[in-house]
């Protein structure tokens, strides 16, 4: 395809569209129903006590099923364990460039959550303390879209030793 009838055709423009009916399953449904209530749920492995967040159906390390009794409620605060500044647009991401993607280790969790951080580019750093910015409660649904982004909070940076295993 080319814009000019006389130019050689040098680029193929592909467009992939796949339609699914996504079924969340027991564990993710429980997680999303909690998100609808403004709560974060993790799952604690009964073998080693590691907390998986978002919650999942079984422990990937020990293959132990996670039941309701494995569920732990977590806060919506955490620590930036790594980040990236995005300067290339993606069609499906409406954020203004540049923006910051972060991996947030929620307090009490052992696995990080990928999200977006609303902060100055010069301020973002590993160890930065952040909190979820929720949409207005009236708009909450069973969706992670309830969280618009994370924002920095006025707390001292987390010590590297506290999250170095989770990068």
């Amino acid at each position: 395809m080319s814009d000019d009838k006389n130019d050689p055709v040098e680029i193929f423009r592909g467009h992939v569209e796949l339609d699914y009916q996504y079924t969340a399953g027991v564990s993710a449904s429980r997680f999303l129903r909690a998100v609808e209530q403004g709560k974060f749920l993790g799952q604690k492995c009964p073998v080693d006590g590691r907390v998986y967040f978002p919650s999942r159906g079984s422990c990937p390390m020990h293959a132990v099923p996670f039941g309701d009794d494995s569920t732990v409620e977590l806060p919506d605060k955490g620590t930036v364990v790594t980040y990236s500044i995005v300067r290339v647009p993606s069609e499906n991401i409406p954020l203004e460039l540049p923006y910051i993607t972060v991996q947030v280790l929620i307090d009490g969790a052992d696995t990080a959550l990928g999200h977006v951080l609303d902060a100055n580019l010069d301020d973002v750093r590993m160890g930065m303390r952040v909190q979820a910015k929720w949409k207005p409660k009236s708009e909450w649904t069973t969706s992670m879209a309830n969280i618009e982004y994370f924002v920095p909070i006025d707390e001292p940076d987390a010590d590297y030793e506290t999250y170095k295993e989770h990068i």
Partner: peptide
Amino acid sequence: EPSLTAPHQLSYTYKRSL
């Protein structure tokens, strides 16, 4: 409770030099 279910469309564009 029954499992949540929702339509999900995965779509992306890309360019490939020929």
